[in-house]
Amino acid sequence: MKKWTPYLLVSPYLLHVVVFVLFPVVFSVVLTFHSWNIISPMQYVGLANYERLFKDRLFWQAIWNTVRFLLVHIPLQILIALALAELLNRTRRGAGLFRAAFFLPVIVSGVVVTILWQQLLSFNSGLLNQLLTAIALPRVAWLDDPAVAMYSIAVMATWKNVGLYVILFLVGLQSVPEQYYEAADMEGATNWQKFRYITLPIINPTIFTVVVLSTISGFSLFIEPYIMTEGGPMNTTLSAVMYIYKQAFQYYHMGYSATLGFCFALIILFVVVVQKRYVEQDI
């Protein structure tokens, strides 16, 4: 009995890992070599799914769409979060209020935020276009113009998530000892030089964390285009996850969907490793 006690104690967690992590991962890898529509039995198809993937232009467009999203979303998120954190760090009065205000969108349901922004960005009655009209500028088809739609979504996603990164950056900024700045004051550094040569390098680990977190969360972009544009116009907002979802639950191509998911996971892994190589610096 004694010998089994430790195993008994870890068994709930082990069960969780086996059922919800290990089994799905193994099963989805197995799935990639099969054709399956949930109802009829699985059929072994060898590498057919992988062959199809490389020829699937829509998948690569979805990947490209996601990359376009990230290229706007990540820099925007970091810049805004860092700027807000820096301001908050200097704010004495009402800092708690602002912190809460910036963080609020993070805890609001993504569906609610998306519907809210759908109203804001509406072509005919949206607040944004009304503002544009008010200052005699032409209206913009924020969600209907293929060249603009994905970027509108990127801005919206930034608004939703930026609060989380503001908090992370704020923690980073507050951990920089005041003496570094005082020493720099004595050396004659301007505010910008202090920020560039002291703050930025010292909070580099935080920047790296934010880049990785927002890359991973950005890659899983789904709710926003699913509700706002359903991947349109002309598939320009079709994100990779959304395409995988469609293959699985609209077309019931479970095997192919698993193949897409598997490749997509490899792509994310590759990107994060590259980021680790180039963004993270040892201090």
Partner: peptide, 30 residues
């Protein structure tokens, strides 16, 4: 006068060396 214009240098209790810079860069920074 701003600290930098006073022509005064200070050695801090906790040294306040910039952790991401080498000794050379720390000394050359100013």
């Amino acid at each position: 006068l701003a600290p930098k214009d006073r022509d005064i240098a200070m050695v801090f209790q906790n040294y306040a060396l910039y952790p991401h810079m080498t000794v050379y860069d720390n000394m050359a920074f100013g």
